[in-house]
Amino acid sequence: MIQFDYLFRKIVFALLTLAVIIVFNFFLFRILPGDPIKLLFRNPRMTKQAQETIRVQFGLDKPVWINTERLQSGDIGGIFDSQFGAYISNLFQGNLGISFAQRSSVNEILAERIWRTALLLFAGEVVAIVGGIIVGVVAAWRHGTWVDASALIIGLTTWALPTFFLGIILLVIARGVLPTSGMVEPGAAKEGTIEYWLDVGRHLILPATTLAVGSASAYMLIMRSSVVEVLAEDYILTAKAKGLSNIQILKNHALKNAMLPMVTIIALNLGYVVGGAIQVETVFSWPGIGRLIFDSVAKQDYPVLQGAFLLLAVSVILANLVTDVLYSILDPRIKAS
């Protein structure tokens, strides 16, 4: 089905992108002004000696990029006895380091948080995709009527609304009715029980809706224009002439072709959704990766930021790779080019 060299090219490209991101990720946070240890311990309770101990503990006493001192003393092997060298070698061992602020393993912190963000994104995206496609198809089918016009106006408005603003509006509207913060009521139910998951579900409604509305309008707008375009094709006229029912025409002829741009937009949107998650999680105090990033930026917690960004980058790269592969399956013309 899929040509081998097409797949190979895509995978190599994804790996290259990843390598660039890994290097970029390291320097991105270090060009910020300031010193994370100073910030952490700008506290009268901390002696200078204790600050130094911690600086050594986290390897921040070493040069950032390459160890010129050891190079000059003729020790070529010691050139990467630097923060960058430690970062790369740890990364290849699957170790993302230790959080400056939380003093625990970044792997553990991320593992704890990732499934919560995944849950939020999944819930939001499922609603967005299903809702976006249905409304988009209906609007296209009723092209030019009031149904289409109102779907278009509402879609454009919600699409233009910043996520955090929409979140705050929903928060004010729903306060007192739905839980507006956190993932569970503290201590209300034992983790893993049905009550626990029902509680999570109730807490999920507002943040997932906020996330879904933004994406859904994008999907709706694309789906609508895509279906409108397909419906004008000659083969639809042929299908009508063959005496097929509306449903049959939509299902067998229009939708299949209109879905192509949707696959791209859904995959591309993933990157934006992650950005939206940072805002949504901060507004609704959802304890996921987004809020972790928000908090860690303020604390200059480099290891956590590096880890979180790497995780996000990997998921976006993977999503793009999957899209490329899916696309070549859906559209045979891609393989040739």
């Binding site: 306060r175 007192g176 507006t180 913060s181 201590g187 999680e281 809020r291």
Partner: peptide
Amino acid sequence: DQIVYREYGNEDALIQALQVGE
């Protein structure tokens, strides 16, 4: 008998939580 600390992502949400009795 019990003290529960709840963390909020921003100051507005915190103030609102007090208003609604959370």
